[in-house]
Design a protein around this nucleic acid. Sequence first.
DNA 1: CACTTTATGTCAGTGTTGTTGACATTCCAA
DNA 2: TTGGAATGTCAACAACACTGACATAAAGTG
Lengths: 167, 167
Amino acid sequence: MGGQRPGPETLLFLTDEQLRRGIEAMYFAYRGFTADPDRILAEHGYGRAHHRALHFINRFPGTTVNNLLGILGVTKQSLNRVLRSLIDDGLVDSRVGTRDKRERHLHLTERGQDLEQTLSEVQARRVRAAYRAAGPEAVLGFRRVLEAMMDADQRRQFLPPAEEKTP
Amino acid sequence: MGGQRPGPETLLFLTDEQLRRGIEAMYFAYRGFTADPDRILAEHGYGRAHHRALHFINRFPGTTVNNLLGILGVTKQSLNRVLRSLIDDGLVDSRVGTRDKRERHLHLTERGQDLEQTLSEVQARRVRAAYRAAGPEAVLGFRRVLEAMMDADQRRQFLPPAEEKTP
DNA sequence: CACTTTATGTCAGTGTTGTTGACATTCCAA
DNA sequence: TTGGAATGTCAACAACACTGACATAAAGTG
């Protein structure tokens, strides 16, 4: 399977071969990306869904269930199963809203923060290692491609609409 | 990998914020990455595991079950369930090995190739769009970071070992 | 106030994909 | 001939997603 005819860059980097490599790299990298937290989660009887909940509750303390549903893109039944166990195990605190008493505001307990920290740590370690191996310019490109690959809604939600200089 | 000189920006860009953004981008991008094939697979009553099997059988025609197990990193029971349905549905052909009759060599049938092509197409379309939006240099960085994030075994399996960059 | 909508929780069922464990068959190799 | 490797199959189980239906409480609206 050749075709490595050196042409203009703009044509060269969009070959099927380049795309295939990108696709496979994405698959294998995501496996590596989740492997370390998965091991720790398994020790606690949890799965990836618990990690995601812990991550975003830590990121947005006091977020509501509905907020979380929007971020995670799952059904409330699916999220509720996860939240239920985290609350029962004392990792997440669910407080009735003061302004709107229908809402539940979610916070990590001290133990929840501990586990989230542990999970973040091992995951960040691998990402950090990959960043170091690839170099600063590569990291910028990495993020740029990933952000272009996201669905538009998520991109809007997690990237400041004013790209560069945010106040 | 080699020749990493510690400059001032090496410390600067590895902030927790940068890591967190990378982690979230990875999560959301992977969701986007799988979203389009998932829709098509659902129409056929298949899931991601079927896509992965089709992809790697297409990539390595005649591969054995054991080979595939090594690539996919799942149990033979899990893979067998998927292969079973693909074979029964006439998308994959399983041929007893000539040299070693215990082995089964896997090939895509014409219909299997068709579906694989359809799935690849929509996935590649998104990747291509992301590549275009991010630019050629970003793509190189993207791949470099992803490859550094993979487990070492997969990297060895899917990257030409002679791909060391000159320091 | 009556009515509707929203936010949340829960029950029941289903499907995909992963796991372990056990067992059978085939066949290469020492 | 015996051991082990490659494969297939059966059963059970768990995580995590889905749909659909129903309940409750509170907020918003007429």
